[in-house]
Amino acid sequence: MDEAQLIKGIQQGDHKSFQILVETYQRMVVNTCLGIVHNQADAEDLAQDVFLEIFRTAEKFRGDSKLSTWLYRIATNRSLNLIRNNKRKRFFQSIEETFTGGRNRSSEISENRADQPDQNMADQQRSDLLHRAIDRLPEKQRIAFTLNKYEELPYQQIAEIMEISLASVESLIHRAKKNLQEQLLDCYKRKCV
């Protein structure tokens, strides 16, 4: 079944077509979300939201771009919305802690870390450091970098997803790499890891 038939089936409410869509693109959507939010459970939840949105809004798909481009765009937007909402939530929690003296704060201690060998811990720390550095990139740099490095998308497809020029994508990825290099170099000089 080609993309046109698949979309037409979904637009007509065909559950078999929707199932084929999910089976074909689920890994791609989850990985896209994971590359942005860095949390497997959140990425899987976001992927479900993406597919539900596709099912509800399939009639809006005009076919101007590939189906995968549309999915990447929705997955990216949903992921960024989650990050924004989490930042807003943390902001209000910090205000609440200021007024309550931190009495309402819940502890977030990972149970798995105590059981991991030293090497896994060091690897996890380096991974966390990289994710934090990526998260500090400006939004457009973060999106372009994530789609290119985590999803291995070509610049042209990233340009379509982000609705910007190819030159802009090249510039964003170049600046993202430079910013990451500076952040990580600075951190290693300060011995963050």
Score class of each variant (00 low, 15 high):
residue 60 K to E: 13
residue 75 A to Y: 06
residue 44 E to W: 08
residue 75 A to W: 07
residue 77 N to C: 02
residue 37 V to P: 01
residue 24 T to L: 06
residue 51 F to Y: 11
residue 54 I to H: 00
residue 55 F to K: 08
residue 58 A to E: 05
residue 54 I to R: 00
residue 76 T to F: 04
residue 74 I to F: 00
residue 50 V to Q: 03
residue 65 S to G: 06
residue 49 D to E: 15
residue 58 A to L: 13
residue 58 A to R: 12
residue 65 S to V: 10
residue 57 T to W: 01
residue 26 Q to P: 03
residue 69 T to W: 03
residue 16 K to V: 15
residue 28 M to Y: 02
residue 62 R to C: 09
residue 59 E to Q: 11
residue 42 D to E: 13
residue 70 W to V: 15
residue 27 R to Y: 05
residue 43 A to E: 10
residue 74 I to G: 00
residue 48 Q to L: 12
residue 39 N to M: 07
residue 49 D to S: 14
residue 54 I to M: 14
residue 66 K to E: 13
residue 43 A to V: 13
residue 20 I to M: 04
residue 81 N to A: 11
residue 17 S to Q: 10
residue 17 S to I: 08
residue 81 N to V: 11
residue 34 L to R: 07
residue 68 S to V: 12
residue 72 Y to L: 03
residue 73 R to Y: 04
residue 26 Q to D: 12
residue 29 V to P: 07
residue 34 L to F: 15
residue 46 L to R: 01
residue 73 R to Q: 13
residue 78 R to H: 12
residue 37 V to Y: 06
residue 77 N to E: 07
residue 57 T to C: 04
residue 19 Q to T: 14
residue 57 T to N: 09
residue 16 K to T: 15
residue 79 S to K: 09
residue 16 K to R: 15
residue 76 T to D: 01
residue 23 E to P: 05
residue 79 S to R: 06
residue 18 F to Q: 10
residue 44 E to Y: 10
residue 41 A to D: 14
residue 44 E to A: 09
residue 53 E to C: 04
residue 47 A to L: 13
residue 47 A to P: 10
residue 16 K to F: 13
residue 21 L to W: 08
residue 17 S to T: 11
residue 20 I to T: 13
residue 70 W to P: 01
residue 40 Q to E: 10
residue 52 L to N: 00
residue 21 L to T: 15
residue 19 Q to V: 14
residue 78 R to W: 02
residue 79 S to N: 08
residue 22 V to R: 03
residue 62 R to V: 11
residue 77 N to H: 06
residue 27 R to I: 13
residue 73 R to M: 04
residue 20 I to A: 07
residue 29 V to E: 05
residue 21 L to M: 14
residue 77 N to Y: 07
residue 45 D to R: 11
residue 57 T to L: 09
residue 79 S to Y: 12
residue 17 S to Y: 02
residue 70 W to S: 00
residue 31 N to G: 08
residue 69 T to I: 04
residue 23 E to M: 07
residue 82 L to R: 11
residue 38 H to W: 12
residue 79 S to G: 04
residue 79 S to I: 13
residue 42 D to W: 10
residue 47 A to D: 09
residue 75 A to M: 06
residue 25 Y to A: 02
residue 82 L to G: 00
residue 58 A to N: 09
residue 33 C to Y: 04
residue 68 S to L: 03
residue 71 L to K: 03
residue 76 T to A: 08
residue 53 E to K: 14
residue 63 G to V: 13
residue 82 L to F: 12
residue 60 K to L: 12
residue 58 A to D: 10
residue 74 I to H: 00
residue 55 F to C: 01
residue 68 S to I: 11
residue 30 V to K: 01
residue 76 T to M: 07
residue 68 S to A: 12
residue 30 V to A: 02
residue 33 C to W: 05
residue 31 N to Y: 09
residue 24 T to F: 01
residue 34 L to C: 02
residue 82 L to W: 08
residue 51 F to P: 02
residue 63 G to T: 13
residue 75 A to S: 14
residue 31 N to V: 04
residue 34 L to A: 05
residue 48 Q to F: 06
residue 33 C to Q: 04
residue 20 I to Q: 05
residue 25 Y to K: 04
residue 68 S to M: 03
residue 73 R to F: 03
residue 74 I to D: 00
residue 78 R to A: 13
